[in-house]
Design a protein around this nucleic acid. Sequence first.
DNA 1: CCAGGTCAAGGGAGT
DNA 2: ACTCCCTTGACCTGG
Length: 308
Amino acid sequence: MSVNLGYACINSTLQEQSKIMCSRGMIRRTWLAKGIPYASELALSNVRGLREVVKWNNANDISVYRITSCLFPWMSEYDMTRLPDYAEIAATLADVGHIARTAGQRLSFHPGQFCVLASPNESTVVKSLRELDQTAQIMDMLGMPKSPAAKINIHVGGAYGERENALARFCKAFKRLTHSAQSRLTVENDDKPNLYSTKMLYNGVYKQIGIPIVFDSHHFGIGPQDLDYHDSFYLARSTWAPGIKQQCHHSNSRRDYEDSTANKVAHSTWFYTPFESYNEPTDVVLECKGKELALFKYLNDFTLKDAA
DNA sequence: CCAGGTCAAGGGAGT
DNA sequence: ACTCCCTTGACCTGG
C-alpha cells in the first residue's frame, strides 16, 4: 500500500472504554493554585496514556500518529527536567519511543495557532521558539530521529497583509531554534486566502531554509489559489528529501458533507473523498472528528474497494 | 453525575 | 480601537 494512514491525538476507543487520555491539562486558575506538582502529575498520566495509544496503534496496524501538543500542561512555564516525576516521565517516553520505533510507527507533533515564528512581536517569537524547542526535546526523549521523519509541523502565520515580510521573519526566527527543533520543522499550507499557499511556502521557506512542506488537501481548496491540486501536491512532494516519506494532511469540510451551517474550515466526522496521492508513497494524517474510527471506515470505504 | 459555560497564548475580519 | 470570531477538546462549577 503506497499510502499509510494515521490520525491525530485522541484515540476515542481507548478514551471511552478505558478512560485512557494523553491531553489532560488545567486552566490558568488551577495552574496558579496547584502549580508544578500537579503539572508533573498530569504529564506523567499523559505519557502513560500515550504509551497505551502507541501500543494500540501497533496492534491495529496504524503506523502514523500525531501526538497531542498538550502532553505537558503549561510546559512553557517550567523546565521539564525539573518536574518531580521527571525520571519516570523520561523513562516512560523512552519506552514509548522504543515501542513506536520497533514497529515502524511514525510520530509527529503539530503545535497550534499560538506558535508563530513569523510574528512581528518579539515576545511572541520568543514564546514560539521555546515551544518548538521544548517539543523537539520531547522528540529527543522519545529517541526519535532529528529529521522530518519525526516532524514538528506548524503554520507560518504573522502575515498582517504582508506575506513577503512575514516569510522573511519566519526564516530569520528559524535560525534561532535549537538544532533539534530545526532538523524536524515543517510548514503547512493555510486555509485562508490571505495566508500561504504551497507555492508561497516553496519560494518563501523551502528555497530559503530547506524545510519540507506538509500538503493539506482541505486547506488547498480554501487557501490562496495559485496552482492546481496536482502541481501543489508535487511541489510539496519535491521538498521531502530522499529516504524521508512525504507527509500530508487530509480532511473533508463539515459544511460540505455533514452540516450546512458549519464553518467551511471545520472538519467532518467521516470521510467522503479519499486523499489523492497519484499512487505515490505518502503518509497521510487524517484530521476528522471520528478519529481512529474514521480511519477504519476510510480503509473500508476507499482502500479495500480500490484493491478489489 | 451531567450540562453548559469557560478557557494562556495569535491573528483575522468586521465595525 | 474594539469586539467577536476562528478550532478543539478538556476543565470546572453549579445544579
